[in-house]
């Protein structure tokens, strides 16, 4: 089971369907599209990624659950590399 949590070391604002995110630690700037934004917003540290994908992706898009989960996990790991998302195999109480 994989859990994800939004980092506290970011600035973020929704801008017309996309989420603009700035890392406050290295000034990297990102934009997330609508679906990535949904996943990021649902990253509360307690809801498993599999549940988030089911609720936020599969319920809204014509995608294979396994493929959607693989894509979501890849996205989350890339966000985690830049410190804007925390990933753990157990619930996350207080992300950095």
């Amino acid at each position: 089971m994989l859990y994800i949590a939004r980092s506290r070391s970011i600035a973020a604002r929704a801008l017309d369907g996309e989420m603009v995110i700035m890392s406050t630690s290295d000034s990297m700037l990102f934009t997330l599209n609508e679906v990535a934004t949904e996943i990021w917003l649902a990253a509360d540290g307690r809801t498993p990624l599999s549940q988030i994908v089911q609720d936020k992706v599969c319920a809204r898009f014509e995608v294979e659950p396994e493929a959607a989960y693989a894509d979501a996990e890849d996205l989350c790991r890339r966000l985690a590399e830049h410190g804007i998302l925390a990933i753990s195999d157990r619930p996350i109480d207080s992300p950095r």
Binding site: L15, D16, V20, S27, M28, L29, F30, T31, L32, N33, V35, A36, I39, V57, F61, V63, A68, D71, A72, D74, L75, R78, L79, H82
Partner: peptide
Amino acid sequence: MTDVASLTAAGARTSLLNRIGAKAEAR
């Protein structure tokens, strides 16, 4: 995750900032 989600890293940070500024202005 090209089909349902993606992120854009700011390799061209200035370009992305300009795009964000233009989008904000348009809205």
